[in-house]
Amino acid sequence: MNEHTPSPGSVRRVACIGAGVIGGGWVAHFLARGYRVTAWDPAPEFEAKLRRLVDAAWPALTELGLAEGASRDNLVIASTLAEAVADAEFVQESAPEDLALKRDLLARIDAATPPGVVISSSTSGYGMTEMQVDCPTPQRLVVGHPFNPPYLIPLVEVVGGERTEPWAVRWASEFFEVAGKSVITMDREVPGFIANRLQEAIWREALHMVANGEATVEQIDASITEGPGLRWPLLGPCLTFHLAGGDGGMAHMLDHFGPSLKSPWTRLEAPELTTELRDAMVQGCERAADGRSIAELVADRDRAVIAVMRAVDEVRKGAK
C-alpha cells in the first residue's frame, strides 16, 4: 500500500475490464451501489450487449434497493484499456478463462493502472500465483471470484497469490464488503476456490447418475430444490449436519455416521476420518454456531426454510 491507495470506503471510480456475462454483471452491481463505472472489452460493439445486460438486471437491483446516487448514466464506455483504468480506484478483470490471455491482460492492466490501486480478477479456475507472473507490480493483484450473476448473488471469494502482499487482500475484502458483497477471505489458494469445489462435487455426481441411468436431470434438480437446498441458505452443509447429530451435534453425527463415509454412495473418494479431521469439524461447527444451541439453530433454520419456501412459491405462481 502506498500514498496513492484510496481507503476502501472512499472509492467512487471502478474499472471493469471484460464485459461479458460476468463482467457485465459486475458493471450492473457497481452501478447499483452508486459507483461510476468505466468498462472496456476488446469485442466489437460490446457496448450494446453490456447496456442490454445492465437494463435487464436493473429491475432486480431496484427491487433489492439502489444505493444513493445509483444510476445507469454512471456507466462510461472506454475505447482502450488504458483509458478505462486511467483514473480507476479499483479494477475488476473478467476475461475468459484462458491462462495465457489472463497473464497478458493482467500484465497490461497492471502497467496502465495508477500506482497503489488494487486489481482483482474474476477467475473461477486459476490461482493468482499462476496469473501474476508477468505483472510489474504483482503485490497488488488478488482474485475476487464472484458467483453468477454478480449483481444478484452476494458471494465473492478473495485470495492473493504468492507475490500478493497481505495488505492487498485485506483491502480488497474490505472494499467488496463496502460494495455490498458477502466476502470469504481465503487463507490460501485452493484450486477451484471453495464454493466451486463444493458445487463441482455435486455436479460431477449428477453427471455420473445421468450417465448411468440412475436419475434424470429433473429428479436431480428436484432433489436439491425440494430437499437440502432449502436448508442451505441459512446454515450451509456443515451446520446442517451439525443438526443431524441432534443434541450431540457434529460430534455425535460423525461418531454415528462416520463409517458411512466409506459407503459406495458417491464416486468421490472420502477422506480418512482421522481424529484431527473429526475435531476440526466439531470445533468448526461450534465456531459457526457462535453460541447458539441446537434448539436455537433448529428454530432459525425452520423460520428460514419457511420464508424461502413461501418466496419461491410466490415466484412460481407469478410465472404461470
Rank of each mutant, 00 (worst) to 15 (best):
V11C: 04
D104Q: 10
N212H: 09
A211Q: 10
S120C: 13
R51A: 05
D279V: 02
P8T: 06
V118L: 01
S263N: 13
L53T: 11
V158C: 06
A56W: 02
G236I: 10
T80C: 09
F46C: 11
T123G: 03
R292Y: 06
C16P: 00
A100S: 03
I202T: 07
R13C: 02
M253G: 00
P115I: 01
M309L: 09
A67K: 13
A280V: 10
I109T: 01
A172I: 05
N74Q: 15
M1P: 02
G318C: 12
M186S: 05
L198W: 07
Q283V: 06
A201G: 07
R287I: 14
E177D: 01
W58I: 10
L230F: 10
G284K: 11
C16M: 11
A100H: 01
E314H: 11
L243T: 15
R52N: 12
M281E: 09
A32D: 08
K320R: 14
K262Q: 15
V91H: 00
E272G: 07
P146Y: 09
N74T: 10
A206I: 05
M1I: 02
L277V: 09
G227N: 10
V315M: 13
Q139N: 03
V85K: 06
V190K: 07
Q92D: 03
W265K: 11
D221Y: 14
Q132G: 01
R316P: 03
S94I: 05
N148M: 09
A95Y: 02
L268G: 03
R287G: 14
G180E: 12
S71Y: 07
V37Y: 09
K262H: 15
A28E: 10
G227F: 11
A15I: 02
E276W: 08
A95W: 02
S120L: 06
Q219G: 15
R278H: 15
S173W: 02
E269R: 12
V159W: 01
G25T: 03
F147W: 15
A289H: 13
R13K: 13
A195N: 05
D300G: 04
P264T: 07
L207N: 03
D41M: 08
F241R: 05
L99D: 03
L106M: 06
T137H: 05
P6S: 04
V91E: 00
A88V: 07
M186F: 07
T225F: 05
E272F: 07
K181V: 10
F46G: 10
